[in-house]
Design a protein around this nucleic acid. Structure first.
Lengths: 189, 189
DNA sequence: GTCTATATACGGATAGAC
DNA sequence: GTCTATCCGTATATAGAC
C-alpha cells in the first residue's frame, strides 16, 4: 500500500466522519482509530487536519467546475443545459455522497488561499448557472420568474440531495434523474 | 436588564456566531467577547454551552411543529396545505434567519433527551408533510411523481432559504411567497 | 510506517472576591 | 452580575525509538 493510496484512505475515512459530526467535532484521534492506527501515524501521510479538509473540498469543487464547463460547452438550449446540470449533480452525489457534507457544511473552515479559491469557484459556478437561467427566460424557454428564486430553488435541492439519496436506498439513478428533472422543471401541479 | 432577557441575548449572539462558524468552532469566550463580558459571567445566566444550543434549536423545532399542526387543522385541500407550509417556512425564515443555521447544521450536537426529542419532532414533521403530498397525488391535485422526490425537493429549498434570503436583500416577503409557491408548485418551464 | 511520549494551546466549567 | 484565577480534559502536532 503506497503513500498516495494511504492518503486517499485517510481522506475517505475522514469524509465519512465529517458527514456525521462536522469537521470541528472530528479529531485526528477519531480518524486514526477508525483506521486502526494512532493519531501520530497520520502525519506520515498528510501534513495536518487542514490538508484533509482542503484535499476533500477542492477535489469536489473542481469536479463541479469542470462539470459546469462541459455543460456550457455542450451547445444545447438553456433548457438542455439546466437538465445537464441537474444530471451532473446527481452523478456526483451518487459517486461522492460522503464527501459532499464537508463541501456544503465545512468549507468555511478552509484557510487562506484554499478558502478564497473555493469561494471564487463557488461564485463562478452560481454565476454560470444564473446566466443559463436568465438566457432561458429571455428566449422564452422558461417562465418569467425571479431568476434568483429559480437558481436557489434548484441549487438548494441539488446540494442537499446527498442527505437523503442514501436514506431512501436503492433508487435507480436514471429514474431519479428523470423524476428530479420533471419535478424541478415542470413542477408538481 | 433581568435574567430572562440576558439569557435571550446570549442565545441571540450565539445564534449569529453558530451561523458563521458552526457550534463546535464557537467558544464560550467568543460568545462572551461579542457581548463585552468574560466567559465565566455567562454561567450566571445559562448552565453551559449545551443549554444555549438546545434552547435555540428546540424553540424553533416547536415553532415548526405547531405551524404544521395549524396547517393540518386548516381544513384546506392538500394543495392549499402545501402552500401554507411554504408560507410558514418563509415566515419563520424571515423572523429567525440567524438561528436556522444551528437547526439545520448543529442539531446532531444536541445530547440525550434533547437530541431524541428533536429527531422525533423532525420525523413527525416530515411524515405529516409526506401524508399531505400523498393525499394530493391520490386526489389528483398533484402530478403522480415519486412522493419522496417532491417532499425533499420542496423541503430542501425551504430549509436552506435562510442562506440566501438575507444575501439577496430586501426582497418583499409577499413577493417572495408568491414567487416561491409558483416555482415550487408550477415549475419553471 | 507505526509507535510512545510529550510539547503546547485551547476548550468548558467552577470558586470565590468584589 | 461580572470579575480574576484556575482546574482539568482534550486538541493538533512533533521528536525520536523501533
Amino acid at each position: 500500500m503506497n503513500t498516495a493510496t494511504r492518503k486517499e484512505e485517510i481522506v475517505a475515512v475522514a469524509s465519512s466522519l465529517f458527514k456525521e459530526k462536522g469537521y470541528n467535532a472530528v479529531s485526528m484521534r477519531d480518524i486514526a482509530q477508525e483506521m486502526g492506527i494512532k493519531a501520530a501515524s497520520l502525519y506520515n501521510h498528510i501534513s495536518g487536519k487542514q490538508e484533509i479538509l482542503s484535499t476533500l473540498i477542492l477535489y469536489l469543487a473542481r469536479k463541479f467546475t469542470s462539470g459546469m464547463q462541459a455543460v456550457i460547452d455542450s451547445g444545447g438550449t438553456p433548457l438542455d443545459k439546466i437538465k445537464e446540470v441537474i444530471e451532473m449533480h446527481i452523478d456526483i452525489t451518487v459517486n461522492h455522497s460522503e464527501a459532499l457534507a464537508a463541501l456544503n457544511n465545512d468549507w468555511m473552515h478552509l484557510e487562506n488561499e484554499d478558502l478564497s479559491n473555493f469561494v471564487r469557484m463557488r461564485e463562478d459556478y452560481e454565476d454560470n448557472f444564473r446566466k443559463i437561467i436568465k438566457q432561458g427566460i429571455e428566449e422564452g424557454d422558461l417562465k418569467p420568474r425571479h431568476p434568483e428564486v429559480i437558481l436557489f430553488s434548484i441549487l438548494s435541492t441539488l446540494r442537499t440531495l446527498y442527505l437523503w439519496y442514501q436514506k431512501r436506498g436503492k433508487l435507480d439513478v436514471n429514474v431519479l434523474k428523470k423524476d428530479m428533472v420533471a419535478v424541478l422543471l415542470e413542477g408538481i401541479v
